[in-house]
């Protein structure tokens, strides 16, 4: 069996190269942050993970709407891929956030707005995949995945603002223009790196899901010869 070179493998490769470059600049070229020191360098993966996780959830929401509208297997597979990718990045985000919290505040967990929100989001979207895994009928599975994804995504801003009010003290989001230019570069590079890797993985996952679905499908049985007037069974 010959492996075809797919368009997304190129993007994945590009993403990996960019990730190396961005992380190299982030770790060795960019200056250490004045107050937080070397720990701050985790930002070069942390912030891009966050951006891309949100992007994946947003894509999942859009795909889910299209899937509900068209009932095409392709969109269902893409919804699932995007939700899963979002969860993976979101989980990475939690781990990185936890390390950050440990280094800066001395605790593994902090009820910081963004950290708390991302914990809730992981659970929210994990629920979608759990529901999906319980539904056997393919048509129903697609519809229900789409519905659960839409319901979960609409909750995202509500959760965010809610947690913000609930815990209305914490450092303001640092925007790239308050930091040195050499810090912005690796951040931007890694943002695209993770985006490309995510696209690559989502494309692979979509293909896998469609393949699984194809294997579940059975062709209609041959048409039976109608019983004639005189022939007997």
């Amino acid at each position: 069996m010959t492996r075809q070179f797919k368009w997304d493998s190129g993007i994945g490769l590009l993403g990996l190269l960019l990730l190396f470059a961005g992380s190299y600049i982030g770790l060795f070229v960019a200056p250490a942050e004045r107050y937080m020191g070397e720990v701050q360098r985790i930002m070069y993966v942390h912030v891009p993970s966050a951006w891309n996780a949100m992007l994946c959830y947003t894509l999942a929401f859009i795909f889910a709407i299209v899937s509900l509208w068209t009932h095409r297997p392709k969109w269902d597979a893409m919804t699932t891929a995007a939700v899963e990718m979002g969860i993976v990045l979101n989980a990475l985000l939690l781990v990185q956030g936890s390390i950050w919290a440990r280094a800066t505040w001395g605790v593994w967990w902090d009820w910081d707005v963004r950290l708390t929100t991302s914990l809730i989001l992981v659970l929210l979207f994990a629920g979608v995949l759990t529901l999906r895994s319980f539904v056997l009928d393919t048509g129903r599975r697609a519809t229900w995945t789409a519905i659960a994804t839409i319901v979960a995504f609409v909750d995202v801003p509500l959760v965010y603002f809610c947690v913000r009010w609930w815990r209305s003290l914490h450092q303001v989001q640092s925007t790239p223009d308050t930091v040195a230019p050499m810090m912005v570069v690796p951040l931007r590079i890694n943002a695209f790196a993770i985006l490309f890797i995510a696209i690559w993985m989502m494309a692979q996952r979509t293909r896998l899901e469609l393949e699984r679905r194809r294997q579940d499908e059975v062709a209609q049985p041959e048409r039976l010869a109608p019983m004639g007037g005189s022939t007997h069974e």
Partner: peptide, 13 residues
């Protein structure tokens, strides 16, 4: 008209 449940065609042609 055809209806498939899982891998089983309950109704076909």
């Amino acid at each position: 008209l055809g209806k498939r449940f899982g891998r089983q065609w309950a109704l076909a042609h």
